Amino acid sequence: MRFEALSVFPEFFDSYLDMSIMGRARKRSVFEFVAHDLRSWTHDRHNTVDDSPFGGGQGMLMKPAPLFEAIEDISSRGEARPHVVFFSPCGRPYCQAVAEELSHKNRILLVCGRYEGMDERAYELADDIVSMGDYVLTGGELAALCVIDSVVRLLPGALGDEMSAKDESFSDGLLEYAQYTRPAVFRGRAVPEVLLSGNHAAVDAWRRRNAIERTARWRPDLLEVAELTDEERAFAERSMREERQ
């Protein structure tokens, strides 16, 4: 898979993408990454990418011309046109399901806004518009890194254990179960005995129930769409009632 980012700060990405899981996956060619400098598609001596908004208001807006030229130029390169992703509060909420959807794309171009946002006409170029949450970031670079990280984890060869990505929070609509490591007792707090039993069926059953309990406690909204048996849904409802008491 090939990721590309269009940004006024193209140097922003490499330090993160060269470390840890991302760095190892990149070295193994699980994914490629290229950052494009938006200023390369400007034509004035100051390489201006922003201007004041019509009608007045605070801050500056990214101009449409550099964005159109850059995205059209980048899209014309290579055999396959990229899937162009913009970030905006108006976009669909980003979640694990969207990450899984994007993991099947061959080439993704992440367009990183700055300042007060972009001229509205630039959004015509988007194949996808996503929102990372109900908050405001200084720029789209952090959002782009979140997308890259969450998608790369789903690619074959990215993680040492191929089951890791399938066993994490949100992969089945629930939060992940609680996990423990040595020592078995720490400051009087013991690891659940079933996890020390060696009984894999019992461990799996405990983890499933624990995942439902944790979801009922921290994210009950997820239970509305989680795939649960009738027995599990009844258990989830009891857990929510107990949590409210």
Results as ranks from 00 to 15, higher is better:
2 R>H: 03
3 F>I: 12
3 F>L: 10
10 P>D: 12
13 F>V: 05
17 L>Y: 08
17 L>M: 06
19 M>E: 13
21 I>S: 01
22 M>V: 06
23 G>F: 00
23 G>E: 06
23 G>V: 10
27 K>E: 14
28 R>I: 03
29 S>L: 10
30 V>L: 04
30 V>H: 10
32 E>R: 08
35 A>C: 01
37 D>P: 09
37 D>T: 11
39 R>D: 01
40 S>P: 03
43 H>M: 06
45 R>I: 12
46 H>P: 11
47 N>M: 11
47 N>C: 09
48 T>I: 07
49 V>E: 05
49 V>H: 10
50 D>I: 02
53 P>R: 03
55 G>W: 02
57 G>H: 09
58 Q>N: 10
58 Q>I: 09
58 Q>D: 13
59 G>A: 02
59 G>T: 09
62 M>A: 04
62 M>G: 02
63 K>P: 02
63 K>R: 15
64 P>V: 08
66 P>S: 11
67 L>T: 10
69 E>C: 13
69 E>F: 12
70 A>L: 06
71 I>F: 00
73 D>M: 03
80 A>S: 07
80 A>G: 01
82 P>E: 01
87 F>N: 07
88 S>G: 02
90 C>L: 15
93 P>A: 14
95 C>E: 12
95 C>R: 15
98 V>D: 00
98 V>N: 01
100 E>R: 14
101 E>K: 13
105 K>D: 09
107 R>A: 01
109 L>D: 13
118 M>P: 04
119 D>F: 03
122 A>T: 15
125 L>D: 00
126 A>H: 05
127 D>G: 08
127 D>N: 07
129 I>Y: 01
132 M>P: 06
132 M>V: 15
133 G>R: 06
135 Y>R: 11
136 V>Y: 14
138 T>G: 10
141 E>Q: 14
142 L>D: 09
146 C>T: 14
147 V>N: 05
151 V>F: 03
154 L>H: 07
154 L>N: 03
158 A>V: 05
161 D>R: 05
166 K>S: 15
167 D>R: 12
170 F>S: 04
172 D>C: 15
173 G>S: 04
173 G>A: 02
174 L>D: 02
174 L>F: 02
175 L>C: 07
177 Y>E: 08
178 A>E: 14
179 Q>T: 12
179 Q>N: 09
182 R>P: 01
183 P>N: 14
183 P>M: 11
183 P>Q: 09
187 R>C: 05
188 G>C: 05
188 G>S: 09
189 R>W: 11
189 R>T: 13
191 V>L: 01
193 E>H: 13
196 L>F: 06
197 S>C: 10
210 N>H: 14
211 A>D: 00
215 T>D: 02
216 A>E: 00
217 R>P: 00
217 R>S: 02
218 W>G: 01
220 P>H: 06
226 A>T: 07
226 A>F: 02
227 E>P: 06
231 E>L: 12
233 R>T: 07
238 R>M: 07
244 R>Q: 13
